[in-house]
Design a protein around this nucleic acid. Structure first.
Length: 305
DNA sequence: CGACAATGTGTAA
DNA sequence: TACACCTTGTCGA
């Protein structure tokens, strides 16, 4: 799926194109008809991400402080995606979510100079949001529901710290470090556990462990506090890069085959999706194994321990 | 056209 | 550990 960086981009996009506006909501596919009816005609107040969870806040009126807000909770799962279109105010990504091919960039949008309204829905559109100036279509989410504020808080409480949130006090880093070091589970599993760290998926898992030279099978309790902290910092850096770029690029320029400014798809990662290909650092073939029903990639030499 | 894989998670056994 | 979920694109027959 879209890992945490894509969900943060989505939250920004939804806030910037729909914030403060009264929206029409519908479910062309029909599977979210009741939920869409509950959102229809409400004002989108803002959107926020926690890990891979997206929360969109709706109010009855722009400055209504009497009626409690309601929240749309969306989890894209493995293949969910949003697409956008509209006039100049819809500049930015036109598609965020599951890519056509692994490593593909999220697609840049071109504004429609003479926007007259949303197109006929293509495929299975679970939810369509539309303002006077544009539209957003949601396809294939694992979760799509309307919930209350306390229900949203309960979802967030079950999640670990999100490395894309500001961590000015260091509390989040400390929570992550403690979560790793108290567990006998392999660190490669812990990074995929959203209660330990929210937003990391299979690509960031593989790439962060390579960059820190950590063996994915190393038990969490064997990771030093200093190394856990460095891992947290590095994940934060590569995920912030992902938010900026709209794609996951974890290689340093020195480790890429091409010197081109535009990073080629095949040069974007160290180990993810590179089973059998030579490691960019040492030339050893990248290994592949199944771990908890997910593909695990690592360099047996660079990540020997 | 069918089979299959894909940045994921929840449930049952 | 398996598979259900349920969407899209790709690849092979």
């Amino acid at each position: 799926m879209p890992e945490g960086h894509s969900i943060h981009r989505l939250a920004s996009q939804l806030s910037s194109v729909f914030g403060g506006q009264r929206l029409a909501a519908s479910s062309p596919q029909g599977r979210f008809a009741a939920g869409a009816a509950g959102l229809n005609g409400r004002v989108l107040m803002g959107a926020a991400a926690h890990g891979k969870q997206l929360f969109v806040e709706f109010a009855d009126a722009p400055h209504d402080s009497h009626t409690p807000p309601i929240f749309l909770r969306v989890h894209l799962g493995l293949y969910g995606a949003w697409s956008f279109g509209g006039d100049r105010s819809f500049m930015g990504a036109s598609s965020i979510g599951a890519p056509r091919r692994v490593g593909e960039r999220e697609i840049d949008g071109t504004p429609d100079a003479a926007y007259t309204g949303p197109p006929d829905p293509v495929g299975a559109v679970r939810l369509r949001l539309a303002s006077d100036s544009g539209w957003a279509d949601l396809r294939g989410p694992t979760a799509c529901e309307v919930i209350t504020g306390p229900e949203r808080d309960a979802v967030i409480d079950r999640l670990g710290p999100d490395p894309l949130h500001d961590d000015t006090t260091g509390d989040d880093a400390a929570r992550f470090t403690a979560g790793v070091r108290k567990s006998a589970s392999p660190v490669g599993l812990l990074l995929m556990n959203q209660a330990v760290i929210a937003g990391v998926g299979n690509i960031y898992r593989a790439e962060a462990l390579f960059r820190r030279k950590l063996n994915p099978r190393l038990p969490g309790k064997s990771v030093s506090a200093a190394e856990a902290s460095a891992l947290w910092q590095d994940i934060g850096q590569i995920m912030r890069d992902g938010v900026r770029d709209g794609r996951i690029i974890t290689t340093l320029p020195v480790d890429r085959g091409s010197k081109a400014t535009r990073v080629k798809r095949e040069d974007a990662h160290y180990v993810y999706g590179r089973a059998g290909l030579p490691c960019r650092r040492c030339g050893t073939p990248v290994a592949l194994a199944d771990l908890a029903a997910r593909k695990l990639y690592w360099c047996p030499d660079c990540q020997a321990q």
